[in-house]
Design a binder for these strands. Structure first.
Lengths: 205, 205
DNA sequence: ACCTGAACACCGTTCAAGT
DNA sequence: ACCTGAACACCGTTCAAGT
């Protein structure tokens, strides 16, 4: 039997304060929204002083940025999974669009932190990198449909922005999109993706 | 010559503190982003005590909600203008999509407050109303293209979410969309709208 | 009716000090 | 190396009091 990890030598921590803080932060966002997160409250939940986080994160924003990187990474994994499960590139992009909406619905706190925490990309280059990695995963798929790299980027941007818009509407209940209309909205994203693919093909012809 | 309005009887205000606070708030958001706004700083800029705003707004969120209503209203005006300048419904919806992107680029602070301030619609029914008013302006246009109210709503939702996604990407510099690529992005939104219209027509046929 | 002054709990951040 | 304790400026909000 593994010993319980509850006791920690007072004055030190259990060795993974960084992760504990990230988890507490995500909890807080889930409970009170991206604005309800405070470093002090997260410290309290992790059982440390309010000064402790500064040994692991430069400031409040840096913790959020770390979570956002996690968000991008999980998106990339989901998208890669959706792509690798199919063969036809149009099917793959439609699945990507649906997965985008599903990510927002199934990981709402992570989605909000990643896209709604007001993180400045210029101040957090890791975010730009994570975003580029996402793009790099999908670009080859789009390139199998279009002729030319530029057209592939264009198509991918259109599908992504349409999926993002639907994901945001779903998250915020905008435009009459009910928060529980996940399947309908995911289907809508896939449908839109197919329409944009058809348009890209007819433009190329 | 109209007398300068600078002097105010100390102890009272110039009579429009509410507006002065809203302007100061929008200034702050423009300067430091939607999270950089504080009621105290806005009070300072308006030249009143930190308690004064509470005679005009229930709390910090209520001020933001008032600004968001302004945002929806200005959007509606812009969209109505784009629609009334044209005759063909497809042209009108394409112009609407382009205007959506332009609003984000030309009124960034207002766009951010309206969509990125984390306002809870359940707690601010005025927001839901303003959003519905927007929808009501565009629905008849979409209905001229589709057969049936439900299909019109569907088409409008697709065009709006695509435009919203592009607007967000432009505002946040996501997905390689440069912040200064306004015309290109507006054109992209219009193009996407036309593709979705074509798809709606072919689905109906 | 509209505003001030003072107060409270809370937050982000810093820094010297402890182990 | 990693954390605490105490401190600072700042914030949202309340309330009694002033005119």
């Amino acid at each position: 039997m593994t010993p319980p990890v509850k006791r920690r030598p007072s004055g030190h921590h259990h060795g993974d304060l960084r992760n504990a803080l990230e988890r507490a932060a995500l909890e807080l966002v889930a409970e009170k929204g991206p604005h309800g997160f405070s470093l002090n409250e997260a410290s309290r939940r992790a059982g440390v002083s309010v000064a402790a986080p500064y040994k692991h994160f430069a400031d409040r924003e840096a913790l959020l940025a770390a979570l956002a990187v996690t968000g991008y990474r999980e998106q990339r994994e989901r998208f890669a999974g959706a792509v690798s499960a199919l063969d036809d590139p149009a099917d793959q992009l439609a699945a990507f669009a649906a997965a985008y909406v599903r990510f927002a619905a199934e990981r709402p706190a992570l989605f909000d932190v990643t896209f709604y925490a007001g993180l400045d990309k210029a101040r957090h280059p890791e975010l730009a990198e994570a975003g580029d990695a996402l793009l790099a995963t999908l670009l080859p798929v789009a390139a199998r449909i279009t002729s030319g790299e530029s057209a592939a980027f264009d198509l991918l941007l259109r599908i992504s922005s349409a999926a993002h818009g639907l994901a945001v509407f779903l998250r915020q209940g905008l435009f009459g999109v009910a928060a529980d209309a996940l399947e309908e909205t995911a289907h809508r994203a896939a449908h839109t993706a197919r329409a944009l693919i058809a348009d890209a093909k007819s433009s190329a012809a």
